[in-house]
Design a protein around this nucleic acid. Structure first.
Lengths: 207, 207
DNA sequence: TGACACATACCGACCATATGGTATGTTTTG
DNA sequence: CAAAACATACCATATGGTCGGTATGTGTCA
């Protein structure tokens, strides 16, 4: 779905480099504060190339959100948290994985689409919707494991797999907000620990 | 601490009107996308007045975060969730209160400092720190009730009142992010329900 | 009491520059 | 060769910020 130009969409094209630059810069400065020139400079591309590939700055925002969805989908599909045979173990392994990849600089592990959605949700509905597709699409990938775990463990409490999957994303996003506000990644990990504990409680598992 | 000018700091001054305008506009458009002219127009104030009261746009950002901390502190102090005699009931009443005030437009109930922190955490450390003070200061107001509830209920599990208080804020902030991304306030309420369930589990309370 | 010094609050025109976007090329590629 | 991919110069405007000026107190002292 990566806007496959007829010719060569191979890695390293100007379009791709711009989208990759957007991931880094927008996560660090936000979308509005990121200028077209910032992106061109980082991607080593001229303005003409930028507007050849994107009709406007907002159009790049949409494309960046879509690109983020693609890359993260691939990243999470290849992650090792799918390995356990027990579905609940897979869910808990997901949380552990999300916690484990919190490392280095804040802009390296926080979420592009969560950041953008906060900023532009009212002024750029197109971007907001693209961010929404990314977040909720990712949440949906957790539903099957949660549903299987529910069935396997005979859980009948009144919460749904869809709802828990979304809540997990909310905790992750909220952890990022606090980590940024406190300038401390540990704050994000802390909330993941609470999320882990919550899920164990939901499935009646001791510490 | 509201910069009490010697003369008349009475409500309705240009400075206050600008800070109130900032609450509305920044929550809707984000800080970077909010222009000084936007604020002056909304506050019915000239640019001269703006830069008389604030040395720069960033300085207004800091003042807006501080102003937010003041107003929300008063708002939550006056809220009814403090009434229950049982400390755990107060904690749960807080969550119920946070859920209850989710109404109307997204920009009306979402958090100014959470939004700003996400945007400027790296480009404007002063604003980020002011946002952090607001968020973590508010979280701290919950710690006493949580600690009392822990003691009263004989809970000795390995989580701290400080940590839970922060996690509660993370869930709230994350709920706002999802509500914006999905353009649906119900998504924020949904996470509050999970938070309520988590706290009940932590204190070994049935549905 | 009145006049003077002084501070604060506010006004509105102006400025330098940054910014998104365009027009018109030139180069590359299938 | 034709179309896509890029480059360069340029434009209109938006934007943060400045600056000189005015109006309204406020304290002080003769």
């Amino acid at each position: 779905m990566s806007r496959p130009t007829l010719h060569s969409p191979e890695r390293g094209s100007a379009r791709t480099r711009l989208l990759e630059a957007a991931q880094d810069i927008v996560r660090a400065k936000g979308f509005a504060a990121t200028t077209v020139d910032d992106l061109c400079r980082a991607a080593d591309v001229t303005k003409g190339a930028f507007f050849h590939h994107f009709a406007s700055k907002d159009a790049l925002g949409v494309a960046a959100a879509d690109f983020w969805a693609e890359t993260t989908t691939g990243f999470f599909e290849a992650a090792p948290y799918h390995d356990p045979v027990d579905p609940l173990d897979r869910v808990l392994a997901y949380v552990a994985f999300r916690k484990a990849i919190i490392a280095g600089d804040l802009a390296e592990f926080t979420c592009l689409v969560g950041t953008m959605a906060q900023e532009v949700y009212t002024s750029a509905p197109d971007i907001r919707d693209a961010c929404g597709r990314s977040i909720f699409g990712h949440a949906a990938t957790l539903e099957a494991d949660i549903a299987d775990a529910r069935q396997e463990r005979g859980i009948t409490d009144d919460w749904t797999p869809e709802s828990l999957a979304r809540h997990m994303q909310a905790v992750i996003q909220g952890g990022f907000v606090l980590a940024k506000a406190g300038d401390n990644p540990e704050l994000a990990r802390e909330s993941m620990d609470h999320l882990d504990r919550y899920i164990r409680h939901l499935f009646h598992i001791g510490g």
